[in-house]
């Protein structure tokens, strides 16, 4: 497994986490918990976008693995 594909996998997991957290934030009755979920989904999506940027660089460096 190349670094790029590992990073991709992590991005996918992070996006899954983000959407689940968003569902919880919408579903939950308690405001404090909802804000914690929202905060969580914000941080997770920031991390995912940072990783995506890094992924672009990686794919540029190793074009032969692009699209994996």
């Amino acid at each position: 497994m190349t670094v790029a594909s590992k990073v991709k996998q992590t991005i996918a997991t992070l996006q899954g986490i983000k959407s689940t957290l968003e569902i919880y934030a919408a579903q939950c009755q308690d405001e404090e918990a909802a804000s914690a979920y929202q905060e969580g989904s914000r941080v997770v999506s920031e991390t995912a976008s940072d990783l995506e940027k890094r992924l672009k660089t990686l794919e540029f460096e190793e074009p032969e693995y692009r699209g994996l």
Binding site: A33, A36, V43, V44, E46, T47, D50, L51, R54, T57
Partner: peptide, 27 residues
């Protein structure tokens, strides 16, 4: 990674995730 900038980004994000995990733990 051997790239210094990338290392910083990874570590920074790992730190942020750690904080948020801790915050979400009770929920």
């Amino acid at each position: 990674t051997k790239n210094g900038e990338a290392k910083y980004i990874y570590l920074n994000n790992a730190q942020k995730l750690k904080q948020v995990t801790k915050k979400l733990e009770p929920y």
